[in-house]
Every structure is written in C-alpha cells, then in structure tokens.
C-alpha cells in the first residue's frame, strides 16, 4: 500500500460513512430507526439488497474460483430471478399489508407465538454464526496479503460498522450501502480494464478470451445433471430458486431491506432490479478472474498464492521437486499459449487442435503440481482442506496494479465487508427487540424505550460479531462447517412461509411440527448423504409441507390442506 492507496482507501470509506449518517438524520422513533419510516425509494433498496448479499468473500473468492475452476459458479444465480418474481408477487404485498417489522412477526399473525419464536431463534442462530465470519474472513486474507494485524482489522471494521449502524439505524445502513455499491462497481470496472491493459502487446482482448476458453475457464453453462455437483444448469435453476426464496423471503437481513419501501411497487422494483442485475454482475466478477488467469499465462504465478504457507513448505525437502515440475509446466504452458494464438490466427484447424492439446496438457500439469503443493501444506501441519482460492485476486492486485487502484480495490473489499455486516447486525438487533424483547420481556414500554433497546441490541450484536471474529482462528476447520451451517436452517423456514402463504387453513401446531421435521430431514441429509447443499432447502421445504399437511388433515380434515386459489392470493392477516 503506497501513500496514494491510503488516500483513496480512507477517502472512500470516510465519504461512505459520512453520507450514510447525513442521510439518516431524524431516525428518532422505532419505526424510523428500524424501517426508515417506510420512506425508501426503490433504487436505494435495490442497491442495499445487492450490497447486503455481496460480502467481501464474494469478490475475493469468486475471482479466485474463476481462476481455478472457470465461470460455472454463475449458474448458482440462475434461480434468483425466479425467486424474486415469486417474492415480489406474493411476499411483498403480504408483509406490507401486515405492517410488520420482521418476517417472523407475520408468523404469529398467521399461526401462533411458538411458530414465531421458533422462526426468530432459527434466524438468530444462523445469522449470528455468520455475522462474525463476515468480518473475520476478509481480515484473515488482508493479514496474509498486506500484513495487517488480523485482530486490529476486525476491531476497526467492526467498530466502524457498529458506530454508523447504531447511530443512524436502517437509513444509515441503506444509504451507506448505496455508496458502497458505487465504490464496488467502480473498483470492479477499473480492475477489469487494468487486467486487460496489463496483457502482453502481442495478445489482444479477443486472444485473451480465446485462451481462457481453451483452458476451460469460460464454462458458464454445464447442462449435465449431477446431484453431487453444486454448479450446473439444473442445480442453479431448481436448487438455486429454493435457496434464494429462502434467503430473500425468510431471512430478516434481506426482508428488512424491502420492508422500508415507500410502497409495494417500490419494494417490488427493488427486487426485480436485482433479478435483472445480479447475474450480469456475477458474470463480470467471474470474468475478471478468467482474465487474471490469462495474465498469469505470461507472468509466472507462485505455486501457491497463500504466501505464508508457501514460505513454510518452501524450506521442506519434498517441495523442491514440486517447484521444479511447476517451473517446467509454466514454461510449457506459456509457449503453448503463444503457439495456440498463432495457430488460431493462421486458420489451420489441425494445427490449432494440436496446439490446444499441448496447452491443455501443460495446464493439467500445473494443476497437478499446485495440488501436490496444497497436499504438502496439509501434510506438514497446515489446515485440512487447504486452498489458496481466496488469495489469488488480492495477490494479483497488490503486486501488479498501479498506485491508487490498489487502494480502491481494498476499499471495495472493506466496503463489501461493512455493507454485509451492517445488514446482519441491524437485522439481528431488530429480531432481538421486536420478536423476543418486546414480545416476551417488556410488552408495553414507550417508543423511546424500544428505540434505546434497538440501539443497545445493535451494540450487543456488533460487539458479539467482533469478538466471534477475534476467536474465529481458533475454530480452525470449524469455519468451513459454520459456513455450511447457513444452508442447514433455511429449508424449514421456507417451508413454514410456504404454508403460511399457500395453505390458508393450516394452523400453528401443524406448522411448528413441520418445521421441526424439516430441520431433522435437512440434518439427516447433510450427515448421511452426498447430496450437494444447494438442494437442502428444497428437501427441507418439502418435508415441512408434507408433515404439516398430514398433521392438518389428521386434526382438521382434508379440507384444511386445500391450497389458496391463485385468484385470491395468500391470506392477509387482520
């Protein structure tokens, strides 16, 4: 980081937070503090929804994933537009008419208090676990790449987030998100342009795309179906739809974004903007990773991008032959890439196929030697399942990008961390106060009292996230498990909301039992099968529906399991 980088970084972050706090003046009632007085325009909600979903790891990891595995991760988002249509058509009007602060408050209006309490607790458990990781994951990467002390980074980021979230409530969060997305878009565009400019003179943009494709890095659509494969067209369309229905329809960190809308139409527009913009945005991020891959065809990359681990295994005797093989494979690949471009321009299909074979063989050898180095990391006491994916993009940025742009990219990473974290902390505080404190501990206090309780809850969850992040390193490989935990809880929540919207005669006890059964089914699937986690939400939802409808029929007769007619729409609570 050079002086110009620090100037860009600090100026970006200070202006974001100052603008957020300026726009949040007057958040002095619970309604304004938690729902912005339902005054938000669609574009602010749309960018806030996008910013809350895009954490730092989205940018760090997605570019790295494209570098090592190509662009097929984009298929994960194919279900998002379908989910957004369902939520815009069904969920938004129900929540708006019900005048709720949280999604789980609606469950009591529709079912009963125990179903609301279970929904709230599932959300607090799941989102509470990820709140610390949202701050910890980028701090870990920045500590390796830039040498920043991990704990200092988590405390600085956490304190900043808590300050503006606690002072300004959801208005500060939303308007900061708008600014953060502006910085993120600018950073991404400048990164891509810079990568392309840094390519050798003899390699045009068309050649770069051709080379990335020949190495399998532009595999945006895979049509083969496989239950165990996370990313193909079918898992994206079907599994992804269920996942995004759960995330945008049942997770308070997203629901609260569109509950702040001026009207149903404004909230719908904010969701449909994401339905249209999210896939191209992810494609763009993945494409940056593919271009970084092409850049490293002509500039030798390290065997592993995680410098600390590379230095550690570098001293071991077993590493020398791996490094030698890697060096040879890199030279072979560079020569093959240049020959392939030449053959491609010559228009000789036979020569092109021959060079393509040599190019792919060299790439395979590079993948093999990198894999051997990663295994050596594990074998010599490193973390189990070691991968350097999260370090690829930032290694490239800090080593090759010019002064000022490095600062901008680091600002993108920190802005994404803060926008995701502020949304989580804000929603955790809202559910804690509205669904638990106000409902069970202090029912008839003044608005001023609940406003103060909301600020205290924000401070509590912010401090919790920072403390969790501080101890996350000691959790070791549990981090991986905790990340997976997110997908373990959504399915049963989704099933409960589908019951609420689509089966107007099903009652609370059946829904409650269905949620318990759905959760058990997801945990069983995760423990005893190899089915990819992308399918858990659909499985959990199906078990909730089957169980609740069976109980409902047994208790109240077959008519109780009749779905709502498409004309009447979901039931509106009184």
């Amino acid at each position: 980081m050079r002086p110009l980088d620090w100037i860009v970084l600090v100026a970006s972050l200070v202006s974001i937070i100052a603008y957020g706090l300026y726009r949040s003046r007057g958040s002095n009632t619970v309604d304004r503090y938690l729902l912005a007085g339902k005054s938000m325009p669609w574009y602010a909600m749309a960018l806030s929804i996008m910013a809350t979903q895009a954490s730092a790891i989205t940018f760090i990891s997605t570019t790295g994933q494209s570098y090592v595995d190509g662009m097929r991760f984009v298929q994960f988002y194919f279900g998002l537009p379908l989910a957004m249509i369902v939520i815009a058509a069904v969920v938004v009007p129900v929540f708006h008419h019900a005048r709720v602060y949280t999604a789980y408050e609606y469950l009591e209006k529709r079912f009963d208090s125990k179903t609301r309490a279970l929904g709230s607790l599932i959300f607090l458990a799941q989102r509470g676990l990820s709140a610390g990781l949202t701050i910890y994951a980028p701090a870990l990467v920045l500590s390796v790449i830039l040498g920043w002390p991990e704990r200092l980074t988590t405390v600085c980021v956490g304190a900043t987030v808590v300050t503006y979230t606690m002072l300004g409530g959801i208005k500060a969060v939303t308007w900061s998100d708008v600014q953060q997305m502006a910085v993120i878009f600018a950073g991404l565009v400048i990164s891509l342009v810079t990568v392309i400019v840094l390519l050798p003179q003899s390699v045009s943009f068309g050649d770069a795309v051709y080379l990335a494709g020949a190495a399998g890095r532009l595999n945006a659509v895979t049509t083969t179906f496989d239950w165990n494969d996370r990313f193909n067209l079918w898992s994206g369309l079907f599994g992804g739809t269920f996942l995004f229905l759960s995330y945008f329809g049942c997770d308070q960190s997203q629901v609260q974004r569109y509950l702040t809308g001026k009207s149903i139409a404004q909230s719908r527009l904010s969701l449909l903007f994401n339905a249209v913009a999210k896939i191209p945005m992810q494609f763009f991020i993945l494409f940056i990773g593919a271009m970084v891959f092409v850049f490293y065809l002509f500039v030798q990359p390290p065997v592993l991008f995680q410098r600390a681990e590379l230095a550690r295994i570098g001293a071991r005797g077993e590493f020398a032959p791996i490094a030698g093989q890697y060096q040879q494979a890199y030279e072979d690949r560079r020569r093959a890439a240049l020959a392939l471009v030449e053959a491609h321009h010559s228009g000789d299909p036979a020569a092109e196929e021959r060079q393509k074979g040599a190019y792919r063989a060299a790439q395979k050898e590079i993948d093999r030697t990198r894999s051997a180095a990663a295994q050596l990391v594990e074998k010599s006491g490193g973390e189990a399942g070691f991968t350097d994916t999260n370090y690829i993009f930032l290694s490239f940025v800090t080593r090759y990008l010019p002064a000022g742009i490095v600062g901008l990219v680091i600002a993108v990473i920190l802005a994404a961390t803060m926008s995701a974290s502020s949304g989580e902390i804000n929603s955790l505080a809202t559910v804690s106060v509205i669904d638990l404190y106000q409902r069970y501990l202090k029912r008839d206090a003044s608005d001023r009292h609940y406003l103060m309780a909301s600020r205290c809850a924000t401070l509590f969850w912010g401090a919790y996230a920072v403390l969790f992040a501080g101890y996350a390193r000691r959790l070791g490989s549990l981090i991986v498990a905790v990340n997976k935990v997110g997908s373990l809880f959504y399915g049963s929540l989704l099933g409960c909301f589908v019951l609420a919207f689509a089966f107007p005669r099903v009652k609370g006890t059946a829904a409650f039992a269905g949620m318990i059964a759905g959760e058990a089914a997801i945990l069983w699937t995760a423990e005893y099968t190899n089915i990819s986690w992308l399918w858990y939400n659909g499985i959990g939802c199906a078990v909730v529906l089957a169980t609740a409808l069976a109980i409902s029929v047994a208790r109240d007769g077959a008519a109780s399991a009749r779905p709502a007619s498409p004309r009447s729409g979901p039931p509106q609570p009184a």
Partner: peptide, 27 residues
C-alpha cells in the same frame, strides 16, 4: 405486474441461452 414478471422470465431465458452459446463458442 404480470407483464413485468413475464419480461424477467424471458430475460432469464435469453441470458441462459447467451451463456450457453458463449460456453460453446469458447471451449
């Protein structure tokens, strides 16, 4: 809104078809 939802579905179909052709063109 029905027309808006239909437009989003058509958009998704076009995007997937575009990505599919992109993948085939550059593999």
């Amino acid at each position: 809104w029905r027309k808006v939802y239909q437009a989003v579905i058509v958009y998704l179909a076009v995007v997937i078809a575009g990505f599919y052709l992109f993948t085939r063109a550059y593999r």
